[in-house]
């Protein structure tokens, strides 16, 4: 679905992405992690042709992004920006959700069906003015308008930034359901709890280089990679590793349920 082959990209100030290669298959949920300035947003922009690689090749659903217009790639790649306000430009939520469809779907009836389905999925009032909504609601509108054309790949640049727990859970719930239905997700996030709860694979960037690529569980336990990228694992795997360092058998716990189970087992084996 998405393939980076030895990709380099440089802004005027110097190299930003250096020799990055990876491939993401259909239906994968991949988290992109790294400290600020590591090149995460740049890498995302390379995915839909907003930036073209200086050398190497980026292919989306078989299309070379260097030779395809970004607006043409929009039918394959949905891109949710960190700041939803940049995506909103219509007077009502309904018009906003329909905007992306105007370029992707020719049939009016089909556009209306998809628009209404999105409004229902996100529980949005189509008559509301987008800029009068809360930050979380605006993020939902932006996500609904990105999802309406039903792209094969969804690139999310820190979708939960600035959201409270309820808003975050609602947004991630929708994204997770889409992923279960086969949509490929590439998500930038600094929230390790969100990454550990939802992503199955992690890419770790540091200084524009890809220093880690593997299952989220393994990546979060790879102390060298996490340290090099200045990242802290989510709380449960972090706690499990700390306890494991003391000699107890908790190292495998990754979720709350697994930790509870490991604690119960440890308690059971400790009883006479």
């Amino acid at each position: 679905m998405l393939k980076f082959e030895d990709v380099y990209f440089a802004y005027a100030g110097g190299d930003t992405i250096t020799g990055v290669s990876f491939e993401i298959g259909r239906g994968e949920f991949v988290a992109l992690m790294g400290e600020n300035g590591a090149g995460k947003s740049t890498l995302c922009r390379l995915c839909n042709g907003l930036l073209k690689p200086s050398s190497g090749r980026v292919a989306v659903c078989g299309c070379d992004t260097a030779r395809t217009r970004t607006s043409a790639l929009a039918k394959y790649v949905g891109f949710l920006f960190q700041n939803p306000d940049r995506q909103l430009c219509k007077n009502t939520v309904r018009e906003e959700v329909e905007l992306g469809l105007e370029y992707a779907v020719a049939d009016k009836a089909e556009r209306v069906r998809r628009r209404d389905a999105m409004l229902e999925l996100f529980g949005l009032d189509g008559d509301r003015e987008p800029f009068g909504l809360s930050r979380g609601e605006r993020q939902k509108v932006a996500l609904a308008s990105v999802l309406a054309p039903e792209p094969d790949i969804l690139v999310l640049d820190e979708p939960t930034t600035g959201l409270d727990y309820r808003e975050c859970a609602a947004i991630m719930g929708v994204i997770s359901r889409l992923n279960s239905a086969g949509t490929t997700i590439l998500m930038v996030s600094h929230d390790m709890e969100v990454v550990s709860d939802f992503a199955s694979r992690a890419l770790v960037l540091n200084g524009g280089r890809l220093i880690g690529d593997g299952a989220v569980r393994e990546t979060m336990r790879a102390r060298r990679v996490m340290n090099e990228a200045s990242l802290l694992p989510a709380q449960i795997p972090s706690l499990a590793m700390r306890i494991a360092d003391l000699g107890a058998e908790y190292a495998g716990a990754f979720t709350v349920d697994e930790m509870v189970s490991a604690a119960a087992n440890a308690r059971g084996s400790a009883r006479p």
Binding site: F79, Q87, G100, S145, P149
Partner: peptide, 9 residues
């Protein structure tokens, strides 16, 4: 940039 990513030409 955001609008281009949505398909606006």
């Amino acid at each position: 940039e955001a609008q281009t990513a949505r398909g606006v030409r």
